[in-house]
Amino acid sequence: MNNFKANYKKLPPEFNIFLVLLGLALLFEILGWIFIGQSFVANKRRLIIMILQVSVIGIIAVGVTQVIIMAGIDLSGGSLVALSAIVAASLAQNSSYTKAVYPHLTDLPYIIPVLAGVACGLFAGFLSGNIIARTGIPPFIATLGMLVSARGASTWYNNGMPVSFLNDDFIALGQGVWPVVIFLSVAALFHILMRYTKYGKHTYAIGSNEEAARVAGINITRHKIIVYSIAGGLAGLAGVVTAARAMSAQAGMGMMYELDAIAAAVIGGTSLFGGRGRIAGTLFGVLILGVITSGFVFLRIDAYYQEMVKGAIIVGAVVVDQIRYKKKNTKDKDI
């Protein structure tokens, strides 16, 4: 028994989440054979669609995870997707369309709309970060403001009209496995940054004990601005991928994506109290959301039920986190 405990402790902390993922897949597999008469997992197309669907959420979730580890929150992700998508799309239109947003700026190399979209998110994140770090208002409020404003800005940008007729080069970014490749690269990069660099260490330290980080000489203001800017930039990248995938952009895109992203982080074991969490966990959190969505579609259950179950899972994940947190604190008092 002790041996088992010791071995269990050696496993990465994502092991539990991985079990949940396997359990959910197994559940849908069994239900699939009972009700539909086919396999859930043994369908390559379904799995690809599933991962494609969550890639955009995943890119936002990576940014949000580091914000939550720093004991912050970012609610602006979904709106920044819309704003960045529409800005990027407006610079990616082809010249054959006569009513382009910028008739003189058509057929640009695809890197320009991509950079514009990312920069747009980065700037919004920089703005939120400055407000949070310099005025000390709760991140919840600052990013809620950004959520509303960015949605407004994306409607204002093209008078609420969708932007379409995009270049093939740009569209290619959202086709095939590209969204998945982009998501996984971002996740891998940030996994390394969070674990092996000063940036990651300071993010965990601020989330764990901001006062300790401050007296240790970490520049909290600068660090917070960087973290929120990166979260914004990743939301911008997600917007670029969304526009490329949909081959158009409109102001209503990315609605509620921020909540899915936060859910993925929390399900993946990131603590809302800050200081704990890993990008690898978020990866599994994202996959769990994907399995739930495609499992419900597979079983032909209405979308409302899906939302209800998702809500329950998010609350459940936070309850588990709370229990773990309390257990840890009472243990401290025992010693």
Partner: peptide, 8 residues
């Protein structure tokens, strides 16, 4: 207050 980051 010790000023330690408890999670590190």
């Amino acid at each position: 207050n010790l000023a330690l980051a408890d999670d590190l």
